[in-house]
Design a binder for these strands. Structure first.
Lengths: 206, 206
DNA sequence: AATAATCCGGACTAATAGTCCGTTTCGCGT
DNA sequence: ACGCGAAACGGACTATTAGTCCGGATTATT
């Protein structure tokens, strides 16, 4: 059934090099210095290679983000409760926000850069749509009287790189996530317990 | 006491021309075609003039936004209840969100362009800070148990140009505002009445 | 009318996204 | 081992745009 020819080894090597170079540049300076020229130079490849692989700036950052969040997505889809199917909506929601929050806190710079690059089509990104569908379903389950579609967007809107950075003081790396969970709990109504399901501190870019 | 020399008449004329040209370009194409070259050309002035007046791209868009929201800000500061001081927090909040929502619905393109241009320093913008302080105070009043500072950011994060556009179908121009009000009500807890204080339809760009 | 403060305009620089195509490398079939 | 077509490479090239700069024009003041 005409299986796609596998990726050539040089292609793989270069793809990795480019992603790695991007990470490195993000970690060093702000998301601004990550020009694709620089990425290509640091990765030791030509500019054309970067574009052939990732299409454009947004694609590159998206790929990086995708890499960082694949695990969470799989866990949500097929993993054990409370992240995966089976647990009550409220618990799944808090577990999910914990996971997404950890990613955001560990990759705030990448997040900003991605938002900047996406501009318009942010809402068409498959990754975004997955998160949105998931949240929307959980919200609809917990509060069928509210506009779950909108609220899911609202919750995701909070995962703005700059906001995350601003809400993440050095001495309290999970502050952001706690606040998001508290907000979700408030939206679901009643029982405002907070701060459940906190994982250990993440450790990524800045 | 050394009163600042007033703005020269040519300066005033040009400032107006530039703002007007910007509006026009925003209305025509997406926020993308609004390059400062084009603005200057359409306004019939040199590029230098645009930059001298507004500092940079962000400043220009900010000025336009400021113009569109000055009225609301004054009403919130000194106007009669429920927008102005005196009414219960919940009522002030819904009235405020109605006002801000109307501005957003009528200026979604401008909003996107501004966000794009601001990037980092969005949270230092005096206008943003004013809205944030206001919301934060109202939230703290209604729900002293929650993180009002964060929730105010969260509510404002929803005023994203692209999201507004997506949540504003042609046949229901206030859908976005209603959803935001519903969300605010849910956050304040209890009594989920919705859709109070809707003004007539706005009529601005696109 | 003279003069000084202010403002104007558009050529110029710099940065960067994205394209293009001649050249090189890879891996499959023989 | 070898040859050949497909795939990938690289970096010069284009296009766009934000922002700077300064000689010259305009405005207000006396």
């Amino acid at each position: 059934m005409a299986q796609q020819r596998a990726e050539r080894v040089d292609a793989t090597r270069n793809r990795r090099a480019v992603l790695h170079a991007t990470e490195q540049l993000l970690a060093e300076g702000g998301g601004d210095h990550v020009s694709l020229d620089r990425v290509a130079a640091l990765a030791g490849v030509g500019k054309g290679t970067v574009f052939r692989r990732f299409g454009n700036r947004a694609g590159l950052l998206q790929a990086l983000l995708e890499e960082r969040s694949r695990e969470l997505r799989d866990a949500v889809k097929n993993g054990p409760p409370p992240l995966g199917p089976g647990a009550p909506a409220r618990d799944r929601m808090l577990a999910f926000l914990d996971g997404l929050g950890a990613i955001a806190e560990g990759n705030a710079v990448l997040l900003s850069a991605h938002e900047q690059a996406c501009a318009e089509d942010k809402y068409d990104d498959p990754s975004y749509r997955f998160w949105h569908r998931h949240l929307s379903a959980l919200l609809a389950d917990g509060r069928p009287d509210l506009d779950a579609d909108f609220l899911a967007h609202a919750l995701l809107a909070v995962f703005d790189g700059d906001l995350v950075r601003q809400m993440t003081p050095a001495d309290d790396p999970r502050r952001f996530t706690r606040s998001v969970q508290q907000m979700a709990t408030a939206l679901l109504g009643r029982d405002d317990r907070q701060g459940v399901h906190l994982r250990p501190i993440p450790e990524q870019d800045q």
